[in-house]
């Protein structure tokens, strides 16, 4: 028989400290991995529409936290006018940074709506952000995105089950969906939210406009687009690439759900950028990765 006895495994060395703060009547929750590990700047993660730290960063948070401190914000959805949504959410991110990581450069990484929020936070408070990563973000909601938003709204009224299927269809790349079994498709479909919070965030999505704030972003920025993204098509990321002075650009072969489809590649991109934001100069398109 094997001489080794079974040692209960623990979850690596990743600790998650939970905290919260209040802005007006909004409670903002955040997670902090605490352990610095190294001299690298901490990374602040901001999730996307309908997501949370847990649902969007279940992979990125612990795996990045193995090498540097990571803080992730669970955005609270503001009531008010939807066109103020991006700035209200950016304030939450700024407040968390000021509370948890005061007076030091952080690398702020946002995904989807989180990218919009992160860009807004970096443009309005350049002093807080040393580096910026925008994954599947967009510059200004365009007609294609509004059309999708219309369908989302209409289905929410008429057929919630169809809405979930539509979300799965839009979120993942065609090649990924094509590989899945019926059971796996159903599991994906049932994971989507259609609640009021989600609906409020969809309204905010309709009104996103970074045209004025993008030129104020001063720090090195990495823009990551999904080649097969239907929700924030890669051309939108290219618009950000044009609008932000110190930006570099790369694509991952993925749909919008890149945090699920290509999480390890995102860890690579984020960790490499955090270690050396200027490895590639402003204006560079990163060399194609051919593993």
């Amino acid at each position: 028989m094997s001489t080794a006895s079974t040692v209960p495994a623990t979850a690596g060395d990743v600790k998650e400290n939970h905290g919260s703060l209040h802005i007006g009547d909004l409670e903002v929750n955040f997670f902090d991995s605490l352990d610095e590990h190294s001299g690298l700047p901490p990374i602040v993660l901001v999730h996307g529409t309908g997501g949370s730290t847990r649902s969007h960063f279940g992979f990125l948070f612990p795996m990045l936290a193995a090498k540097q401190r990571v803080v992730a914000v669970d955005l609270a959805t503001p009531q008010g006018p939807p066109d103020e949504g991006q700035i209200r959410m950016a304030e939450q991110v700024q407040a968390v940074i000021e509370k948890v990581l005061p007076d030091r450069p952080v690398t702020l990484a946002g995904y989807s709506l989180g990218a919009v929020v992160a860009a807004t936070a970096a443009g309005t408070r350049p002093d807080l952000v040393g580096g910026l990563i925008l994954m599947a973000g967009w510059l200004k909601t365009d007609a294609q995105q509004k059309l999708r938003n219309d369908i989302w709204r209409a289905l929410r009224q008429s057929d919630v089950e169809a809405l979930r299927r539509y979300q799965a269809f839009c979120a993942f790349s065609a090649p990924l969906l094509a590989m899945l079994s019926d059971g796996e498709i159903e599991a994906l479909v049932s994971s989507f939210r259609t609640d009021d919070v989600m609906a409020a965030q969809m309204e905010i999505n309709r009104h996103v406009d970074l045209t004025d704030v993008a030129p104020k972003i001063a720090c090195p920025t990495l823009i990551v687009a999904g080649t097969d993204d239907l929700m924030t098509p890669f051309r939108q990321s290219k618009r950000l690439f044009g609008a932000i002075a110190d930006a570099r650009y790369t694509e991952v072969t993925s749909g919008h759900a890149m945090v699920v489809e290509r999480p390890a590649e995102l860890v690579h991109l984020i960790a490499a950028f955090n270690a050396n934001p200027n490895q590639y100069p402003a204006g560079a398109i990163l060399p194609t990765r051919r593993p």
Binding site: A11, G12, G58, F59, M63, T253, A264, E265, R289
Partner: peptide
């Protein structure tokens, strides 16, 4: 493209090796 998909998928399996609960 198939190779890249397989590579990044396989690399994501390291999360289980690093004992991250959900992936384990």
């Amino acid at each position: 493209e198939m190779r890249e998909m397989l590579f990044w998928y396989n690399d994501s399996r390291f999360a289980a090796r690093r004992l991250i609960d959900d992936y384990l």
